[in-house]
Amino acid sequence: MKFNLKVWRQKNAKADGRLVDYTIDNINVDMSFLEMVDVLNDELIRKGEDPIAFDHDCREGICGMCSMYIDGRAHGPHHAATTCQLYMRTFKDGDTIYVEPFKAKAFPIIKDLAVDRSAFDRIIAAGGFVSVNTGQAQDANSLPVEKEAAEKAMDAAACIGCGACVAACPNSAAMLFVSAKISQLAMLPQGGPERKNRAIKMVEQMDAEGFGNCTNIGACEAECPKEIKLTNIARMNREYLAATIIDE
């Protein structure tokens, strides 16, 4: 297979970026998208050019490190999959494919397709945890959890923190990510004692990081590789409003 690639190249955070054209041939249909980029990089290195910088690690769809905006979509056209789980057979021979980094003010570009998503870490640091020091825990079975609640908590916990929700959102909002964590911990009794403070602190940090506002468009849900649901955002709204309006 042969492809025309238009790849976003940007030297560093301060420089301006632009699309650069590459043509790549002899691509096997069974290759993953990242393996195709590997092949391209190999060619670039051999030609003495600077290879394309991009983030990736586990390459099995779970670490959340890969982060490309492919063909106008976060993680590309495949449903519920990360970039590393996108295979070249999804495309047609001769296709032109745009490859850009996740773009948002809160995700500054580091180089080419690699972006800085540490804002997510800071949001978790603000309150995305249960304050329990090692050794303080009671017996694991002393606190039964309704199976349905546990399942829903797991649904929310499945978030891999890749940032596709922000990338896909026309407003660059991070609500799906933040709400997934708030939801998970709100649905489990372990998260109960801190739920008000958690909602306030995490939302505060989210706003301080410069993410956009949610207008319930739903692009985040549609592009999430782990299929995190919008219901989580509604739950976060409730948690936050309960914490700010009802609480003394």
């Binding site: 238009k6 976003w8 970026g17 699309l19 905006y69 063909d71 106008g72 979509r73 056209p77 745009y98 850009e100 773009k103 948002a104 003010k105 809160a106 896909a168 026309p170 407003n171 660059s172 909002a173 410069g210 993410f211 956009g212 739903g218 692009a219 549609a222 592009e223």
Partner: peptide, 14 residues
């Protein structure tokens, strides 16, 4: 919140 826009965006897909 997104000072540099996507060059190619298929928002209609989602």
């Amino acid at each position: 919140a997104r000072p540099v826009k996507y060059a190619y965006n298929r928002a209609g897909d989602n």
